[in-house]
Nucleic acid binder design. Structure first.
Lengths: 210, 210
DNA sequence: CTTGGTTACTTAACAGTGTTAAGTATATTT
DNA sequence: AAATATACTTAACACTGTTAAGTAACCAAG
């Protein structure tokens, strides 16, 4: 079956070429400029060929959204060397904001746009694996903080959601230009950082507040 | 000048008709179904006529976004009768989330979509009046909390941003379906409420924690 | 070696989008 | 009555996602 194996390989190569082209378009020209026709132009196939490798555009965007989570994991790599869970939690927030501000296109796909989630609903996987995994790490860290009496004990799910929401809120308001007219450009990142630091201080019950 | 006055009036009426039609479309069929052609169909004019009353689609969406802020003000009406600024702050968050979840289309326009903000940048007004005003009320309340020693004193701007970000984060993650696979439908609102209550308790230095 | 069928891809079209240049009546002013 | 201004429309441009139908190329069976 060496022949059909090679064909399988070739199919995967074109799939990859489509994703690469999509990536190129959407990193260089932003989300709204990723179109099936432009992808087809780049890989030098007709637009309809794209549909032989992906169900629809949402599925392509879902795949890019997954690549986004991989990229985010790179930002978080050094996180797991941090022993103190409270310091780790703080850094987690910082890295999250850094990733979002430096990769607004990916952030859009991962946490703002509807399209990738629509792909998920169709496939009926009915599981947002990447999101669930990321939230899991956050919950673990918060649980650890509670276990070590670094923050007040409470509902881990609710507190995790609140923590995530705070950093997501900041990043999404920033990249969707809601801070532009309210904070000067040079004060935006400092204000965001201060907001997170404020939260960290306010939850800190260890007595070693920074 | 009675005649030109009547004409002015008529012009305003068509402007209003366009906005009414846009409203109808976007409340009934969602944001992505508001198109110039559909608006034109509803008001029984040709699509190009719309451009005689609005610069472009972004300007129409900006106007709808303003109506959204008015609607939000209605939700907040009873807020200003609350004397205790800490209780008011809590209710502010609750009403904000309630508004967002009950009016996702408006919320989109006000705090998520780029289009309305693009209209603002073109007009060179260079001021997001509605957003600035809303944030102002939040800052006042937080300042009052500090003055009355109900929360720890600190950077009002940063803390206001953090507070806003938390509730915005929750609403936007919810309406963009990021909670769907992570929290069961019936637990979503309670989890969000708990998250806000947690923050309120954690900042409360009055000693009367609920 | 030819036939039949599968695979991979393309052409052409549908139904829509925002936007604009150019044209046409109607009404007002000179 | 002629010139001008107002209000609106037609037709087109350049796009979008998506699909039905058609066409080559290859591959296995008779």
């Amino acid at each position: 079956m060496g022949i059909s194996e090679r064909k399988e390989k070739q199919k995967l190569e074109i799939r990859k070429a489509i994703l690469d082209a999509s990536m190129k378009l959407f990193v260089e020209q932003g989300y709204e400029n990723v179109s099936i026709r432009k992808i087809a132009d780049l890989i030098e196939y007709s637009p309809t060929t794209v549909y032989l490798y992906f169900k629809d555009k949402n599925e392509i965007l879902f795949q890019l959204h997954e690549i986004g989570f991989q990229k985010m994991a790179e930002y978080n790599a050094e996180l797991w060397t941090i022993k103190n869970p409270l310091v780790r939690l703080h850094k987690m927030g910082e890295f999250y904001m850094k990733f979002g501000l430096e990769n607004p296109a990916f952030y859009d796909l991962m946490f703002i746009l509807n399209a990738p989630m629509e792909a998920l609903q169709v496939v009926e996987k009915c599981e947002w694996k990447s999101g669930d995994q990321a939230l899991g790490k956050l919950k673990e860290t918060i649980q650890e903080c509670m276990d070590k009496n670094l923050i007040e004990k409470g509902d881990v799910d609710g507190i995790s959601m609140a923590f995530w929401s705070l950093v997501h809120g900041m990043v999404s308001l920033a990249i969707r230009n809601r801070f532009d007219k309210l904070v000067t450009a040079d004060q935006m990142v400092p204000t965001m950082t201060k907001g997170l630091t404020w939260l960290m201080n306010v939850v800190d019950t260890s007595g070693n507040k920074t």
